[in-house]
Design a protein around this nucleic acid. Structure first.
Length: 463
RNA sequence: UCCCCGAUAGCUCAAUUGGUAGAGCGAGCGGCUGUUAACCGCUAGGUUGUAGGUUCAAGUCCUACUCGGGGAGCCA
């Protein structure tokens, strides 16, 4: 008899059917009258299967003490309609094997609520909890939805490099990659000769696949990357990770309005798909984690995003009639408090801001004719803040060269990037979505460290 | 990196002006029950984050460090 996943049994198992299942014990409740109830979970869904073990089952007297929270079991029996409340069917156990024991004294997961801080310290066991099992399934469904969204539209999935030698991609501190013996070099105290290093020059982990994605956008057409990204910033917040996953589409012949259109339908579409595919898990998040999360997501799928320019946003903020901790002034970057006010209070829904001052944005964004702004856009959502950052790219050779110099960088370091403007240049655009921030938005989890299986943050890289 | 707060039993937290360390949950044992956040009783469990200092006496006061939380900056 083949083993079945619990999600299938709970969905369509019929009384009278013989079933074999494997999984991990969540709880056991004994009835000395001759029964034991065991909640068995196999991770296929949030719900557990209730096992009903008759007290006279062969070998049960010996096994019962080992059927503790966390132990793994293989059982077979007959499905029955459940006379109790809380489940449609239950499994009347006819044979039971304890595969792996879990010592009740030392097993860290107890039959009670744990804090997320504690569970983070046992990241190897936390996916066995309701919350982290659900997050794992949401991440999976969200990944699939992202690929489906782009694949349905003919986008090509491009694998951009993890290791890069562009030492300034414009997005912050980078992790150095080296095979040099730093311990020995420190002892001899010599000047470091990168010619001796693995790549013959300094190398780092990527902070963005955008520049390489532009190469493929201007050859195979609409494309996207979806991979790990690394930032060595000393950021200690609930919205930052040192290693995270980023989705970066890049489209030729797209101007900024096309880019905003795609970003909006992207967010709304993947949100709707996860809501549809992960109903039970989403009910759980709404009940146990954040009772506004389903309403927030419905607001996203049902309404068009607000669009306004940076300049209009500044006017709204100046006229808001409140004291800002940081003053609002055209030409300065908007602060967290400003962005939150716009998306959470003033509009109460996602907002796309565009046309930012060129002085606060990177070199590759296309300059507007006013000479003061660039075609940048940020998508802001309630609670999480900036979830997407993107722009139309500067496609004019002379302007790009000017901007590289203006930003204090060397055009020669970007010779291949500049070449894209020298040969067959086209207007093009793209954006980046922080995958874990999207998971945060969907689940209502307040800390991004709980939205990725093994979080890497400053001073923290266990597991 | 900056500001504020915290670290006490396996977990979540108490402990008056400095005076011998407590509860709930979990665990073990027993009782009861088609149970489902099960219920009732008993028992065990602690170098109070680390290193110094003040004091007759420190969980409590002081200093530094480590880690965690909230906020900020940087960003996705």
């Amino acid at each position: 008899m083949a083993t079945r996943r619990i999600v299938q049994i709970l969905a369509d198992g019929q009384p009278g059917e013989s079933q074999k299942v494997c999984g991990w014990v969540r709880t056991r409740r004994d009835s000395k009258a001759g029964l034991s109830f065991v909640e068995l979970n196999d991770g296929s869904c949030l719900s557990s299967l209730q096992l009903v073990v008759p007290g006279d089952l062969d070998g049960w007297d010996d096994a019962v003490g080992r059927v503790t929270t966390g132990a793994s079991l293989r059982v077979s029996g007959t499905l029955k309609e459940s006379p109790g409340k809380g489940q449609r069917v239950e499994l009347g156990v006819e044979s039971l094997e304890v595969i792996g024991e879990a010592d009740a004294e030392s097993y860290p997961l107890q039959k009670k609520r744990h804090s997320f801080e504690f569970l983070r310290e046992i990241a190897h066991l936390r996916p066995r909890t309701n919350t982290f099992g659900a997050i794992a399934r949401i991440r999976n469904a969200l990944s699939a939805a992202i690929h489906r969204f782009f694949q349905d539209r003919g986008f090509v999935y491009v694998h951009t490099p993890i290791i890069t030698t562009s030492d300034c991609e414009g997005a912050g501190e980078m992790f150095q990659v080296t095979t040099l013996d730093l311990k020995r070099l420190a002892q001899v105290q010599t000047e470091i000769d990168y010619g001796q290093d693995f790549f013959g020059r300094p190398a780092s982990l990527t902070v963005s696949g955008q520049l390489e994605a532009e190469i493929y956008a201007t050859s195979v057409g609409d494309c996207y990357t979806f991979g790990p990204t690394f930032r060595a910033e000393n950021s200690n917040t609930s919205r930052h990770l040192s290693e995270f996953w980023m989705v970066e589409p890049e489209m030729p012949f797209y101007e900024l309005p096309d880019n905003m259109e795609l970003a909006e339908s992207f967010i709304r579409s993947i949100t709707a798909e996860v809501l549809e595919r992960c109903g039970e898990d989403m009910e759980f998040f709404n009940k146990r984690i954040d009772d506004t999360v389903l309403a927030t997501l419905a607001n996203i799928t049902d309404n068009e995003f607000i669009r306004l320019t940076y300049t209009e946003a500044v006017e709204i903020l100046e006229g808001a009639g409140r004291e800002w901790e940081y003053p609002v002034q055209w030409g300065r970057d908007l602060q967290s408090e400003h962005e939150r006010f716009l998306t959470e209070e003033h509009f109460g829904q996602p907002v796309i801001l565009y046309d930012y001052p060129r002085t606060i944005k990177p070199f590759y964004m296309r300059c507007n004719d006013d000479g003061k702004t660039v075609r940048a856009m940020d998508v802001l959502v309630p609670r999480v803040g900036e979830i997407i950052g993107g722009s139309q790219r500067e496609d004019r050779l002379d302007v790009l060269l000017e901007r590289i110099t203006e930003c204090g960088m060397e055009p020669e370091d970007y010779w291949w990037y500049v070449d894209l403007r020298r040969y067959g240049s086209v207007p093009h655009s793209g954006f980046g979505l922080g995958f874990e921030r999207m998971v945060q938005l969907i689940t209502g989890m307040s800390n991004i460290r709980d939205c990725i299986p093994f979080p890497r943050t400053p001073k923290s890289a266990e597991f």
